[in-house]
Design a protein around this nucleic acid. Structure first.
Lengths: 224, 224
DNA sequence: CGGCCAAGCGTGACAATGTCACCGACGCGC
DNA sequence: GCGCGTCGGTGACATTGTCACGCTTGGCCG
């Protein structure tokens, strides 16, 4: 609980923790700390960082934005993970329209590209870390494709409510925000939540959902 | 047009073409050639190869399979590309349900994992090749998510017909297969094709679609 | 040849989801 | 209190998914 919790941030990451002391010291010199306020765009089509991001504190919501104003959340980057989509898009010059938004205030370690290259070349365990990060995102996206293409909306909503609530019995979210999570329209969420409420699974107030029957939601998330 | 067109396969790939001669010779020793017949499963949940695949000839269709028997095509791996999803899934031990199917007879170069690791460590241009391959797949998947979540089915079908037809005016595909391409049900394809036919965009016969009005399909693929 | 059978396709009825238009309720600043 | 923007509710309709069924085609086999 020090004033500078990232004094040695290399302790916080799988891929850097196991590195030899001298390499870690080199990293500490090369990297910079950067902060983002909640709600800020961390990266986007018009804002591609030239460094690799290590997320020390907070979480980033990665969303895909459609032409007509609809969104869908692809995945979240949590503390201790790195954000590879940005590096992906640094390499592939293709068009894409995903953006990362600070879901909380963030503390980020940025490692310049040259140092990143050097590290991947020299340190096998760091390389594994990077590949594992890519793999996790690929698999996250496979899951999104599967859900969007094949899963019922009530099931997806139930699952997402539980996820967003975490251990709490209540979560702050408007119907619009939930629609953005799942890539659907607000009206659909309103109708489903109305139904959940009638069945006693949740209670609603303006901008807030209370989980009333966690077991029932879990059952719905499993089976549809 | 030799009998052994892959005598030096390192010429066929971005990531290996630029390597020094001695590295390429080492690769030629380490790698093996493998063939798959059209329709064979190249990889899948129960069949994870322990090598990196370089696709020399043919193309692989990567599909995601849902529980209830429905499919969706995620992307295709063409000659000159490598198939990173398999390596992704070697690393991340998570469950996934994508599989690669030989769309034609294949000639594949397989590079054992140890040699792959060594190469990524030592050769920057190979490393770039691998990262670029990951990036391309990530972006392919972003496109799939976008289409499935937000695009109209008639638009997606028109686009896919043009893609599958290539330069030909005709393609061999059943309604079921087209449904698998787009992750929808056969009936939906049947209805849409019936409509396309009534409007004079295509003509149908059993297992075959003829493109009658390419411009109209293109227009539909653009705007919906 | 004739009959059987599986694959391919057509179709109607209904359910789930997306779209559009509109409205009321609530919270906030003036 | 009043105006105003965000949030949520609702009905009508379009699109897409699901289910059940039946017809046709082409191949295979007696």
């Amino acid at each position: 609980m020090t004033r500078t919790p990232h004094a040695d941030w290399t302790d916080s990451f799988q891929g850097t923790r196991a590195l030899p002391r001298e390499v870690r010291d080199r990293l500490l010199k090369a990297a910079h700390t950067r902060r983002f306020r909640k709600g800020t765009e961390v990266f986007g089509p018009h804002n591609i960082p030239d460094s690799l991001f290590f997320l020390l504190q907070g979480s980033i919501r990665v969303v895909q934005t459609a032409g007509n104003g609809r969104d869908i959340v692809l995945y979240r980057v949590d503390a201790g993970e790195s954000c590879v989509l940005t590096t992906a898009c640094m390499l592939a010059e293709e068009a894409y329209n995903a953006e990362g938004i600070a879901e909380t205030d963030l503390t980020v370690i940025t490692l310049p590209r040259a140092d990143f290259d050097r590290l991947t070349a020299e340190e096998p365990c760091f390389r594994d870390f990077v590949f594992a990060a890519y793999s996790r995102r690929l698999i996250d996206l496979l899951r999104v494709v599967n859900d969007v293409a094949f899963a019922r909306m009530d099931m997806r909503l139930a699952e997402r409510l539980l996820l967003l609530a975490g251990r709490d019995d209540s979560l702050a979210a408007t119907h619009s925000q939930l629609a953005s999570e799942l890539g659907t329209a607000r009206e659909v969420i309103s109708r489903l939540l109305h139904d959940f409420q009638k069945r006693g699974f949740v209670a609603q107030s303006r901008g807030r959902i209370d989980i009333a029957d966690r077991a029932a939601l879990r059952a719905m998330a499993q089976a549809g």
